[in-house]
Design a protein around this nucleic acid. Sequence first.
DNA 1: GCGGATCAC
DNA 2: AATGGTGATCCGC
Length: 318
Amino acid sequence: MEGVDKEKVQRIIYEMSKGSKYFENEKRKEAFIKQKIESLRAQRAKLTEKDISHFQMIVNKRILELDGSRDLSKIWLHTDMDAFYAAVETLENPLLKGKPLAVGGMSMICTASYEARKYGVRAAMPGFIARKLCPELIFVPTNFGKYTYYSEKTRNVFSKYDPDYIATSLDEAYLEITEICKQRSISSEEVAAELRNTIYQETGLTCSVGVAPNRMLAKFEFQLVEIGYTDLIALYWNIPVCSDINKPNGQFILPNDRDAVMTFISSLPIRKVGGIGKVTEQILREVLGISTCTEILQKGALLHALFSHCSTGWYFRY
DNA sequence: GCGGATCAC
DNA sequence: AATGGTGATCCGC
C-alpha cells in the first residue's frame, strides 16, 4: 500500500513487542526455521551435476504434462468484499465514514478500514499496537450477526450467477460463470462489472473481483481424496490472486489464453500463491533464491531434489 | 497413524 | 497488560 512508512511501522511494532512472551516465542520459531534452512542448504550443496540433470529431466516431463492438461475452457470468478467488517460497520454508522477504523479490540483486530491501513494498521494486528500506529484509530467490537446478514445478501446475488457458487468465508466466494457468459453472450468483464454493481445496489458495499480460467475446482474437494492432490489443485490459485490486483472496488480479468496465463504468472511473487505462506517463502528464498514463480520453473530440478514429490508437484501446479 | 507446523480466513 | 479461533493439509516421525 502506497503512503505507508514501512520502516516506521516495523520499528513501532518491534518496540511494542519486544520482551513479551509472544515475541520470545516468535524468536524461538525463527531459530527453528533458520536451522531447517541450514540443513536444506547442506543437502543442496551435496547434489552433483549428474543428480541435477537427472532431476531436471523428471521435472521437464512433469511440466509438459501439466502444461498439456491445463483446462482453459472455463471461466471462474472470485469475489472479495472490500474491508468487509469495517465496511458493514460504516454502512450502519455513517459517522465512521472516511475515518480510520478497526473492527476488533485491544488484543486483536480482524479488519482495518482503508484509512486505517494508511497508518500500517492491518488485520490480525493487536489493537494496542494499532493504536500506537494511529492514535485517532476508532475501535468497533465485532458483531458477526451483522456480517452474516450482509453476507447473506451478497450470496443471494451470487446464486443468480452460479447457483453452485462456493463460499469460502463470509466475504469471499467463487463463481463459475462460463454458462452465463455463453447464454447472454457477454464477456466475463461485463459479468464482473454487473455483479459488482448489483452487489452495491443490494448492500451498499463494494467488492473486488478477479476472473481467470480454472479447472476442476468444483470437483476439487471430492477428487482430492481419490486421486491424490498434486494434479488437482492446478490452476485454481490464480483466481484469488486476480481479485487482489485492482483493490478496492476493482476488477481484473485474466483471459483464457495460455500465453496470458504464463505472462501473468511469470512476474508473480510466490508469496501470492495460495499455500505459500511466510515460512515457505522464506525457505525458498534463502535456500534456493526463489522469489518469483518463473524462478520456480527455472530451479525445478533443485526443488525436486530437496522437497518431497508431493510438494514439488504442488509448486508446479500452474 | 499422530502431533506439530503451516496456511488461509 | 495485551498477539485470534477454526479447520484443513502436510511433514516427519
